[in-house]
Design a protein around this nucleic acid. Structure first.
Lengths: 194, 194
DNA sequence: GTCTATAGAGAGATAGAC
DNA sequence: GTCTATCTCTCTATAGAC
């Protein structure tokens, strides 16, 4: 184990949570994957509730950074939207994992209220970003058929998260690709490539 | 307990699975809710795998019937789509439960392959129905901006399932309503009401 | 069809040695 | 930081009486 144990634990816990749900893995699973005993994990994360909190906090930060990178790398609204779609597509890991918010939505009653609020905060951040991007799309006219940015943002996030579900069941990105096709078709750059 | 115990068990198990995930409830939970001992549940459903199979089979049948009812009650594509949206909205139970397919997508690795295939079959049925309805929408012009019915169907189902997730986290229908607003706005009947 | 009783596995968590 | 050992609880499931 070359890397920091704590980080490795978070990585593996996140993968497990996104792959099997927060109830779908145990400290024993992590212990085997990381190569230490499960009692040692409690040193890093005393309780599973504690672990879940660190997972969603890190996820929020990471996602925020990725969104900032997208804004840095792309100037037009359509390119930014396409980059966001790619981000979600990559998060699928070929149909093996869903977004952490998706996974945490199902076990809502078994995670702490604090974590539930943080999941809401991640979605709020995403909605704000997507809404701003649709507003930009209205200006630069790079995305077609925009009427209400706020509503578009809600629909888009729901669709991205929902597209993860069918793809996860199928263990294949195909259902995801099929679902995002309509949205992609509204992007100017995407249309040019076809 | 006036009703058939087996049916009551299925009802409560379905509610639990949709509310907390398939890993989120136990035979002990069902026993308390139904008012019999957990050993007695094994008489009706020998294993939890068996229970999950009956849940998804019943869900498929029930959904098929509801779709047929919608076709019976409504003739235009927009009214049928609005009825489907209402169906999903009601399935939310005010933000307490998601679609069973959604719940079963997260615990994919812990349910049998047979059940995974059945979940796929439910989605395939829904996609077929929604696609047909968009094709009807092209003819009767009751839904605006339709280009590709197949792609529209995939996007619509993903959005409906995804809209369940945010609403479940919030324990409120508001995020669902916000997400379906765009789709609703394309329905002729809906537009008339505004 | 429902019960009591129990098996056997695995969960999250802690104490204390090194 | 990681270990062994252990606790307590809960899980799914079964045996056998009624």
């Amino acid at each position: 184990m070359n890397r920091d144990t704590r980080t490795t634990l978070l990585d593996i816990a996140e993968y497990n949570a996104r792959s099997r749900g927060f109830d779908g893995f145990s400290y024993a699973d992590l212990a085997v994957a990381v190569g230490i005993r499960k009692a040692s994990i409690h040193y890093h994360f005393p309780t599973k509730a504690d672990l879940s909190d660190h997972l969603i906090v890190r996820y929020h930060t990471s996602l925020k950074e990725r969104l900032a990178e997208i804004e840095n790398d792309h100037l037009s609204a359509d390119e930014r939207l396409m980059a966001l779609i790619r981000l979600y597509r990559e998060a699928l890991n070929g149909g093996q994992t869903v977004c952490l918010c998706v996974a945490f939505s199902i076990c809502r009653e078994r995670i702490s209220e604090k974590v539930v609020i943080r999941v809401g905060a991640v979605r709020a951040m995403l909605l704000k970003w997507i809404k701003s991007n649709f507003e930009l799309g209205l200006k630069d006219r790079s995305i077609s058929l925009i009427t209400a940015p706020e509503e578009e943002a809600c629909a888009t996030l729901a669709m991205l998260e929902g597209a993860h579900l069918a793809a996860r069941t199928a263990q294949d990105t195909a259902p995801f690709d099929a679902a995002i096709q309509m949205l992609l078709g509204r992007c100017r750059q995407s249309a040019r490539k076809e």
